[in-house]
Nucleic acid binder design. Structure first.
Lengths: 154, 154
DNA sequence: TTGCATCCTGTACTCGGGTACAGGCTTACC
DNA sequence: GGTAAGCCTGTACCCGAGTACAGGATGCAA
């Protein structure tokens, strides 16, 4: 049923606009398995079903929940074959832990920045050496190596 | 005074170990202007002064404060020529705003994750479509495009 | 049927923050 | 003076998440 006559889906440009992403990004997501390969017109142009907009909204929402695209595609897959259904809640639980840690880190950072401002130090290096400076280098040094790569490479 | 006799600095491997970074990273920082070019032995091996450890600690602390390496090198430079001395506090103020925004975002995300877990939905796409699902897609959609790129590309 | 917007593919590049590797030279110690 | 560990340089590669570009092919309306 290639190129269903009558019902016209969305062209890539339309979908991109509707979802607020770049059209190239659609192909990128398709390559990464996040977006199902759509129907094509006889000429080979992609024709997305209306639901694709929802899928994109979900991808974006999940990204904002802190999932990487890798994780999102995983998530969409487990959701697909319904049987082992608690994949989402389970992963959300794990991600929640990460997010909480991240908030904790950022709170340390926030305090440090406030103290930096209050102290009005001019030179970080000098302060770090003098020890007179209230910037808490020690707690900062103890944060997870990179706030980004949370659980990767232990 | 290349290769000061008597006083020996740190070899790159020693500095790397002391600061907990990869030795290659030192060269990388040097290229990026974060770490001053050190003395050399007659044979061309780098000899760092003891303060280099502090500099690295500061770089790492600043990174954890959310500054990019670009910003850190900026910060170190302004700190260098002392005259316009409030560079640090000023930048810290700006960074604090970013960090606060980021915490606010993460808090939205945290709530969303909690609700996801509570709801026990199995399939994000379906939920997003049905509207029965308590996952707040709308607030998520309104977060700054990427939690990462905070002020870049408005 | 012409013309222009849109889309197609493949490949290459961006950015940020590093890391790895090859092939050779120094340093330090015995 | 031999030898192993450590360091040097330059270049190339990694990740994640896209984005850009070249060179064609389609879609659609007038």
């Amino acid at each position: 049923m290639a190129a269903v006559s009558g019902y016209e889906g969305l062209r890539s440009g339309e979908l991109a606009a509707a979802a607020g992403v770049n059209a190239q990004t659609l192909r990128y997501y398709e390559r990464r398995g996040l977006l199902a390969e759509p129907e094509r017109t006889l000429g080979g142009h992609r024709l997305y079903p209306a639901e694709a907009v929802t899928v994109l909204r979900v991808i974006k929402a999940a990204q904002r929940l802190g999932f990487t695209l890798e994780e999102v595609s995983d998530l969409l897959e487990t959701a697909g074959h319904r049987h082992r259904g608690d994949g989402l809640a389970e992963r959300a639980r794990l991600k929640l832990i990460e997010v909480e840690e991240r908030i904790a880190d950022l709170t340390v950072i926030e305090q440090a920045l406030r103290q930096t401002i209050e102290a009005g130090c001019a030179d970080l290096v000098e302060c770090a050496q003098a020890g007179c400076c209230p910037i808490p280098f020690t707690p900062l040094a103890d944060l997870r190596r990179t706030p980004e790569a949370l659980e990767e490479r232990p």
